[in-house]
Write a protein that binds this DNA or RNA. Structure first.
Lengths: 226, 226
DNA sequence: TAAGTAAATACCTACCGTCGGTATGTACCT
DNA sequence: AGGTACATACCGACGGTAGGTATTTACTTA
């Protein structure tokens, strides 16, 4: 007849199917029927594990945000790194330009730019902003102590840092998808390096995340336009 | 029986009703039936003027964006103003802290922060980003010529300027609604003044939009927490 | 110039499929 | 026997469509 699965195996199946469908056709256009059809269960099963469609969105957002934050935390906690090193690492880490395959990342680009996924993206951002703000604040405070950063309010600067970071991510994704040539993308990246330095009050050359990211972006570009 | 109206009178009625409902209950939760009920027409009438619900959203976004841009253009074109003056004016103008009543602005705050209205807000932003980018670029170029701004890429700086501007608007709106005390809001405003100066490479004290905006924000605050 | 009429415009009613969500039933495990 | 983990059958509301009808306009003709 049907299979009963223990623990949260079913829940995981539903969550994974939902996420896959969000990637494929956007989360607004994904219906509950789509999700249960893919898993091969009934609507009753879905509503056994989730209270609503929103509930799925929320769960996915929480997981996603936690995954990113989990990757960022070790960097901040690493005593051997300087503030500038931490910050550079954070950027590529949080923007997923590390340990993420080009194929997955290019998919994510589309997902994040799609209008259908605005709610999901916003939810993720909201889950991240507070903890990411704290992490960034810590780094910036360290930088001020080290004398490389100069700002009167590390908290506000951290917030702005995150805003500008997401803006950069969006801008880069757009350039890659619109198949601008690599040179233009490189220019944009270096512009943002300098922008970050200005915002943080850091000396020129302190912020350097462009080169490692460029390698990734090149393979993204190849993945998309091959 | 029913009244036939010429031109786009009906269209306007529907658009106005839609916008009012978006304000009241969010645009996702507003159904076509809600709109036509308010105007007192049939669904057929609605689909005579619009192809879809999305169509209404788009129309409203276009109108909104155009209204803001129309307010911004004269500032940029004014030959008597310096780049810094133009930029300061632009900020309060585009963020609607001029010639907008406190009551209307506080409503708009909620509208813009509501999750239900994400699509509308995004659409408006997309309509504005390109033209607003051009306007800002012009100002920044003028500033570079005048020697008050210092940036290698006015275009990129303009783009970032807009991103940070919207970020600031959101941050301020949140503070006002969450009823933070005026002092905190004032601090945030001055932080962003300095942030803009850093981004633009402008000397300290060049960017000054806080004071006139603070007046408005105070009345917003009173409107909301009275 | 007034009346007649065809065509285009402005609008209505009734209906469809799909959606998110619910109520109730049932097989399985301990 | 009772809770767990599903399935089934159904609901109201939604966005959207089809096909018809009232109203206005434009043109003709007596």
């Amino acid at each position: 007849m049907w299979v009963s699965k223990e623990g949260d195996v079913r829940r995981r199946e539903l969550l994974d199917a939902a996420l896959a469908l969000f990637y494929e056709k956007g989360c607004e256009k994904t219906s509950i029927n789509d999700i249960i059809d893919r898993v091969g269960v009934s609507k009753g099963a879905f509503y056994y594990y989730f209270n609503s469609k929103e509930d799925v969105l929320e769960a996915i957002a929480v997981e996603y945000a936690e995954r990113i934050l989990a990757a960022a935390r070790p960097i901040v906690g690493d005593d051997r790194l300087s503030a500038a090193e931490k910050l550079n690492s954070m950027v590529s880490k949080v923007l997923e330009y590390k340990e993420t395959l080009a194929k997955e990342r290019t998919t994510l680009m589309r997902v994040f730019l799609q209008e259908e996924n605005l709610k999901l993206v916003r939810r993720i951002f909201e889950k991240m902003i507070a903890p990411a703000g704290e992490l960034s604040t810590e780094i910036i405070k360290q930088g001020v102590r080290e004398g490389v950063f100069d700002t009167g309010s590390p908290e506000d600067t951290a917030e702005l840092f995150i805003y500008v970071g997401t803006a950069m991510k969006a801008a880069l994704a757009k350039l890659v998808i619109e198949s601008q040539d690599i040179k233009a993308i490189e220019r944009k990246l270096h512009f943002y390096e300098e922008a970050f330095e200005r915002i943080l009050g850091a000396p020129k050359g302190t912020i350097r995340f462009a080169e490692p990211m460029l390698e990734c972006i090149k393979s993204d570009w190849d993945t998309l336009h091959s």
